[in-house]
Structure formats: C-alpha cells, structure tokens
Nucleic acid binder design. Structure first.
Lengths: 211, 211
DNA sequence: TGTACATCAGTGAACGCGCGTTCACTGATGTAC
DNA sequence: TGTACATCAGTGAACGCGCGTTCACTGATGTAC
C-alpha cells in the first residue's frame, strides 16, 4: 500500500541515523494506529531498510516501542509546555487558576487531536516502567512535572491551601486523564465537539472548585 | 501450555451452548491479558472445540470480542450495583454523598482487581459503538446509568444544586475513570496500595466538593 | 410406534499472511602505521 | 600522503509461529408422515 520510499540511499550505503529514523517512523505508525500499530517490519519498510537492520539499534520490538512511547510522551509534554509558555505567569489567584485550566485543556486537546500518540504515550502496559509518577531522570519536561509546577504556583498565589497541595497532583491528573480517555476511543468517542467542550469546561471547574 | 481440556464431549456430539461457552472462555482470556488476549483460536481450544466451530455463532473474531467486552462491562456494572445494594438509600445529604463515594470506590476497586476485564470493557476501539454514553437498549444496569441514579439521589437529598446536575455525570465519571486508568497499567501502576487508597479518597473528596 | 428425511452444529484439513527474529554475509568508513 | 586493516551498519535469505478464515464434510437431533 505504502509506495516503496524513494530510498534516498544517503551516502550510498550507511544510513544517517537509523535509530532516530526508526523512532520517527514508529511515531508516525503510533499516530495513525496507536501502540499496536508500531510494527517493527513496517517501521524499517518506511525508512527503506531491511527488517533486521533494526536490531543494530534496538534489542527487540519492545525496545523500539518503548522509545516511541517516550517520544510520544515528550510530544504531549511539549504541547502542554507550549500552552503554558503562551501565557503570563500566574501571580494572582485567578491567573494561577487560569493556568491550571489551560494546562488541562492542552492535555485533553492533545488527546483529541493525536489519539494514537496519546494512547501510545500511556501504553507501557505495566512493564517495569514505573511504580509512581513518570520516571525521573530525563531532563525534559514531563506532563506530571508541569502539572506539579502549576499547582505550586496556585499555592504561591494563595489559590490553594498548602495542606491540600499534597495529593492535588494525582486528583487533578486523574480527572483530566479520565476525560481524555473517555473521549478517545472510549464510550464518549464521537461526542459532538461542542458537547465535549462543555463537558471539559465543567470538569475543569469541578477540579478547580474541588481542590 | 494449557493442558488439552478433558473434552467432556457432553452428549457425545453437540455442545450444550457453544456461544455462551466461548464468551466465558473469552472472558477468562480477557481477565488474564486484556482485550488483545481474546484470541478466537485459544477460546475454542479452551472449550474443546475446533477453531472454525466459532463461526457458527460469531461472524468473526470482532464479534466474539464485542460479546466479551459487553460481558466485561456487565461485570463492572454488577460490582457497582452490588456495592450500592449493600448500602441504605441516600435520603439525607451525607448518606447520598456516601453512596457517590461508594460507587466510585467500587469502580476503582474493580479496575484494580480485574485490570484485564476493566481494560476490555472499555476497549471498543472507537468502533461504531457509540456517540454518547453507553448504548441504551439493554435492560441490565450499566455503570453510567448507575452513576446517574446516584447523582439524582444527590439532588433529591439536597446535596447537589439541580442546575449543576447536568454535566455532573461526565465530570464524576471522568475523574474516577481517570484514576482507574492511571492505576491500571498506567503511570501509577505499582503505586503502593495504601498510597492508592489515599489518592482515591482524596480524588473522591475533590469530586464531591467540586460538584 | 416406527421410519425417512431435512437441518445445522461441529469436524478435518488447509490456506495465506505478516509478524519477530536469527544467521552468515558484505562492503563503506575511519584509524594505525 | 598512501596503504592495510579492523569495525560494524546494513544486506539477503530464511525460519517457525500462531493467527483468522474458508471449504467441503459428517452425523446426531428433531420433525413429518
């Protein structure tokens, strides 16, 4: 179906950076079809390379998928960070609340626009990946960390009592994550956009009010 | 791996009710491995029947999976209904709120104890299934309907202003669903049980307070 | 009550498919002398 | 600057696998006479 890629053949033999190219191809597959669509053979096909070439860079299919998941998560974090950067700091209570709404809206919007990537980002399938929030260590922004920062601002701005800060991360995250999941391939899939918007605003109000 | 079942061979030739048996087998597969584990050949193997026999009762693998998904959803609804039935009616505000907490807790507990079934119940993969809440028509209880009933009680008991009733379903559902998804195979997979409990209580408080 | 027959649930054998993965290889690249 | 060589990224061919699905069949069951 996919026309065999032009096979640019770069410098005749060696590929520039096959690893990155495979992750990119996997990302496109995930974008179109979610984690199950990240098929090793198809990724190599798209890059214009023989299937087993992938084994120079990944131990097995799972390692490729893992890299794609991480990349998808980075895209989500990037979308959230961009939304925050486009806004002024949240010094006063209402501005801080607005930032919380904005970050939540960005999360849901990403899920709606990139359902495949969204599902892939959260599809580590309960591997050894984590027993807690997203693994620390990477320097880049992660969705959970961004949320935590916004909640800290909320406390600083006096819009959230410090004693309620503790589990606020998880509560807010769960609420927004759940809406995203219901809208993406879940029972609320196909909800009219304006209805989805209304539900989203309502949910964010419940969270802001409840915190 | 699975020892070939004793092949009870019922009345020598015909199977009692192969359709139901296949759904049961599929349910066990889903319980152990989620929707992807619902493999037609394996289901027939477990029932002790030749693979193509399934085609007398299901158009294809998708139809079998669909039946299994519905059965999984019914189990979830059953767990929630049982939790409600074990409680008195919610006439006064606090009792009504308590019922809301109970139904939410049942939802999350089901996800934790039966992750495979939970994921399967919500894995219709955005098929023609629905553009809105779970399909009406079936007489049995469904999770969304049960939640709606509890919210109605909340209004009757005076614990929820009627003008906020409208989108309360989705907001409450999303919050609880999100927690379940984060805990099951998501980033919060492996959270210590006591932490998960605390997070759950906190989330339910945010919802109750926010509504 | 007994016999002929239509139905149709399950059998047996086979198919093509795409997948992940392994093997021995080749030849361009970059380094050591 | 030129030549010999080690490295190792990508090749070519092949494997075994389990899957969903199709085909023509068989024989127990239940009905009509």
């Amino acid at each position: 179906v996919t026309p065999p890629p032009p096979r640019s053949r770069r410098s005749g033999y060696r590929h520039g950076n096959l690893r990155a190219a495979l992750v990119d191809a996997g990302l496109e597959l995930a974008r179109a079809g979610g984690p199950d669509a990240v098929v090793l053979r198809e990724a190599t096909r798209r890059v214009g390379v023989v299937p087993n070439a992938a084994y120079r860079h990944f131990a097995d299919r799972g390692a490729l998928l893992q890299a794609v998941c991480t990349a998808a998560m980075d895209e989500l974090a990037g979308a959230m960070a961009a939304e925050l950067d486009a806004r002024g700091p949240g010094r006063d209570p209402e501005a801080a609340r607005e930032r919380l709404r904005a970050i939540g809206a960005a999360y849901v919007r990403f899920a709606q626009r990139q359902p495949g990537l969204f599902l892939t980002a959260f599809s580590t399938a309960g591997e050894a990946s984590g027993n807690g929030p997203p693994e620390p260590g990477t320097g880049r922004p992660d969705p959970f960390g961004l949320l935590g920062r916004v909640l800290d601002e909320l406390v600083t701005a006096g819009a959230l009592p410090p004693d309620r800060r503790a589990d606020a991360d998880f509560a807010a995250w769960a609420a927004v994550h759940g809406l995203a999941m219901l809208l993406v391939g879940g029972p609320l899939h196909g909800l009219a956009p304006e209805d989805a918007d209304r539900v989203e605003r309502h949910l964010l109000e419940v969270v802001v009010r409840g915190l």
